[in-house]
C-alpha cells in the first residue's frame, strides 16, 4: 500500500538515533455484529525524547484507538490489531508475549484518560491507587509506597496532599482527579506519556492549569508526550508536531506553527476555519459539512471527498497517500500543494 511506503520513506531519523516510539502502518479493526469497523488504517508516527506530538481528530477518527493499541489495552474482542508495529526504543511491543508486554505498561509508557472519575477505581483511596504502582512494579513496602504517593501528589500540586492521600476519587474535584490520574501515570518515570483528551471533561480555567502541569512535567522529565485531542486550541501552545487523523488515517503531519499558518489538507483547513476567532467577529463561522464515513464501509477513493469543498474527479477513484509536500510537511491530498498555497477554488456542486 502506498501509505506504508510513504510512511517508511519519510522518516530518516535526523540524529541517526533510534526514536523513542515508532508506530508503523498500524491497523486495528473492531469485529461487531454490524460488520467489521476499520478503526485504524495504516497509521505511522514517530516520537522523540522531549517531544510533544499532538494527535488531532474528531470522535471516531481512530486517534484514541491508536493510543489503546500502543498501550495494549484494546478491548479485545471486539478490537483486534491486524497489522503494523509499535516499536519502543527499537523493540516491537506487538511481537512480545503478554507477560513481557506488561512490564512496559506504566513503567515505560503510561497513559492518562479523559474522564478521571470513571478511570479511577471508585472503591480505593487515591493514595492507595498511586502507591499500587510502586508496590506492584517495585515491590515497595506499603509505608514507603504511601510516602511516595504523597510526594507525587505534591508534585502535581494537590493542596494538603498528606491529608488527602486517604480520600476517595469522588471526594475530589474534576481538576484534582485529573491531577491524581497524572500522578499515577508519572509515578514510575515513564519515557512516553499518552494523554487521551486529558482536559475535555474539565472547565476551561482548569483545562489551562492541567495543560500547564503536563507541559511542565514533560519538560522536567524529558518525556515524549502524545497529546490526543479534538481541540485545536489546546495544542497550539504545547505541541511540537501535529498529526491530523480522519477515518483511521493520518491526513496531515506538520510542525505546529506551520499548520496554523497554512494547512496543507482541506480537512485541517476546515477544522481551523471552524474555530471562533476574535478578529473575525461578526462573520459567519464556517463548519465542515456532512458526517465522517461509516467505518464498516469506507468509500473508495479519498475518505474525505464527500465532505471536501475542493473534491475533483480523481478523488473519487484514487485514495491519496500521505506524501511530503514541502520538507517536513506531509499531506494526504491530491491537491496538497494547491491547498497549501491557497491556490484552489471550491468545486462546483
Amino acid at each position: 500500500m502506498a501509505t506504508t511506503q510513504a510512511g517508511i520513506a519519510r522518516r530518516p531519523d535526523e540524529a541517526g538515533l533510534t526514536p523513542l516510539l515508532e508506530v508503523e502502518d498500524l491497523r486495528v479493526e473492531f469485529r461487531t455484529r454490524d460488520g467489521v469497523a476499520k478503526a485504524v488504517n495504516g497509521v505511522s508516527y514517530t516520537l522523540h525524547e522531549g517531544e510533544t506530538l499532538a494527535v488531532l481528530g474528531e470522535s471516531g477518527s481512530g486517534k484514541s484507538v491508536t493510543a489503546q493499541a500502543i498501550m495494549g489495552i484494546l478491548d479485545s474482542p471486539p478490537g483486534f490489531v491486524t497489522g503494523g508495529s509499535v516499536r519502543f526504543r527499537g523493540q516491537d511491543l506487538l511481537a512480545l508475549p503478554d507477560d513481557e508486554r506488561r512490564a512496559y505498561r506504566g513503567r515505560s509508557i503510561s497513559m492518562i484518560f479523559q474522564d478521571a472519575l470513571s478511570a479511577l477505581n471508585p472503591v480505593f483511596p487515591v493514595g492507595w491507587q498511586i502507591a499500587e504502582m510502586f508496590r506492584v512494579h517495585e515491590g515497595m513496602s506499603k509505608k514507603d509506597a504511601r510516602k511516595r504517593a504523597v510526594d507525587l501528589m505534591e508534585q502535581v500540586r494537590i493542596p494538603a496532599a498528606r491529608e488527602r492521600v486517604g480520600d476517595y476519587p469522588h471526594q475530589f474535584s474534576g481538576g484534582m482527579r485529573q491531577r491524581i490520574m497524572i500522578a499515577m501515570a508519572i509515578a514510575l518515570d515513564p519515557d512516553v506519556l499518552i494523554a487521551d483528551e486529558p482536559t475535555t471533561a474539565l472547565d476551561v480555567t482548569v483545562q489551562a492549569q492541567i495543560m500547564q502541569l503536563l507541559a511542565d512535567l514533560q519538560r522536567e522529565r524529558n518525556m515524549g508526550l502524545i497529546l490526543i485531542t479534538h481541540d485545536l486550541g489546546v495544542v497550539a501552545d504545547v505541541a511540537d508536531k501535529i498529526e491530523v487523523m480522519y477515518s483511521g488515517r493520518i491526513m496531515e503531519e506538520a510542525p505546529v506553527h506551520d499548520i496554523y499558518a497554512s494547512p496543507a489538507h482541506p480537512y485541517t483547513k476546515g477544522l481551523l476555519e471552524s474555530i471562533p476567532r476574535v478578529d473575525l467577529k461578526g462573520q459567519e463561522l464556517s463548519a465542515i459539512k456532512g458526517l465522517p464515513p461509516n467505518l464498516t464501509n469506507i468509500p473508495a477513493g479519498c475518505e474525505f471527498r464527500p465532505r471536501c469543498p475542493y473534491a475533483r474527479e480523481i478523488c473519487k477513484e484514487q485514495r491519496p497517500p500521505l506524501a511530503e509536500v514541502v520538507p517536513g510537511r506531509f499531506s494526504a491530498c491530491h491537491f496538497a500543494q494547491e491547498v497549501l498555497e491557497g491556490d484552489i477554488e471550491p468545486a462546483q456542486q
Binding site: 495494549g72 506504566g106 470513571s118 477505581n121 504502582m133 506492584v136 512494579h137 499515577m184
Partner: peptide, 22 residues
C-alpha cells in the same frame, strides 16, 4: 469493561491483580 479496569491494565498490573483486586 469499566474504565477503571482499563486503567488497571494500563498501570501494568498482572491480570490476576486486575481481576482479583480491581
Amino acid at each position: 469493561r469499566a474504565d477503571y479496569v482499563r486503567t488497571a491494565v494500563a498501570k501494568g498490573l498482572p491480570q490476576r491483580r486486575v481481576i482479583g483486586v480491581h
